[in-house]
Design a protein around this nucleic acid. Structure first.
Lengths: 144, 144
DNA sequence: GCACTTGTGTTGTAGAGTGCAACGATATCA
DNA sequence: TGATATCGTTGCACTCTACAACACAAGTGC
């Protein structure tokens, strides 16, 4: 670490570089599932029955954007919409079987690629890296 | 290292979540300087006289995309193009004074925001996080 | 019950970013 | 000289995105 460049600089630069590449990498690895689609499916896997508005807030997207993405995912048979009986404005989003399938496939191929990159890492370093990322994202969510 | 979720899973998930937010965050903080524009300017600060093709390779972008971005940045007075006298096909890109200015401004406001998030971090943790990111990106570049 | 406000999602519109393909200009080499 | 390769630009089509306007449902005050 050079004297002139603080860790903060490095974190900023490296995260920026990563963000820049992420889209291209994701697109190359899974042309049929955009980064947003992937994150939506992944989110639904965790929180079945989540609302479109929640997705928009969580990923800092406009509700119209989410609406279109959701429509596309439904058209492809990856998710289902069920109207909330207690509030007919709300649509509860669920993973459809097709969605679980493609999500598993996308995840494993992403996993494979990441594994290839991280094969040389000491497990302890990897665990620490993971925990730092978790902490950073949590901080980012807390400081909007 | 949890039994159910490996560090690999966590790294994958957190990097994906970060990538998803990065664009929105960048756009909110600097509406006049897109994420790509910022990275290009930042890259030029490091390597004055770099070629458009180098940028494309480094950020996994099509040369046409870089061409348009560069054209826009030049129009805004942020960069200059100088024809390489030893090879008239290539244009060497340089930061213009206006570019240095806006880059400094963008960086400091990004820095401010990141600093707010990372204020609580132990400097040692921060340094380790930075080095992990550097290593990860280097690995990513090596395993395309 | 009836307006008024709020929350949820859709659609129209416009703009930015991107990749692919085709092209012109320049350089290199046989 | 002619063939091939490299660098950058442009035409085209597509996706993602935000903003604004809208319809519909739910709650609120009268």
């Amino acid at each position: 670490m050079a004297a002139r460049e603080s860790s903060l600089d490095v974190v900023q630069r490296e995260l920026t570089a990563f963000a820049r590449r992420a889209r291209a990498t994701a697109a190359r690895m899974h042309p049929e599932l955009s980064l947003v689609s992937y994150t939506i499916l992944s989110h639904l896997e965790e929180r079945q029955g989540c609302r479109a508005t929640d997705l928009a807030a969580h990923y800092m997207l406009d509700k119209s954007t989410v609406s279109r993405q959701v429509a596309a995912l439904e058209k492809m048979g990856f998710i289902e919409r069920r109207v909330d009986e207690s509030d007919h404005r709300v649509q509860l989003l669920h993973l459809a079987p097709g969605g679980e399938e493609i999500l598993a496939s996308a995840r494993s191929s992403r996993q494979e690629s990441i594994q290839a990159r991280l094969a040389d890492w000491d497990p302890e370093d990897l665990a620490r890296f993971a925990s730092y990322l978790v902490r950073y994202n949590a901080d980012a969510a807390a400081h909007p």
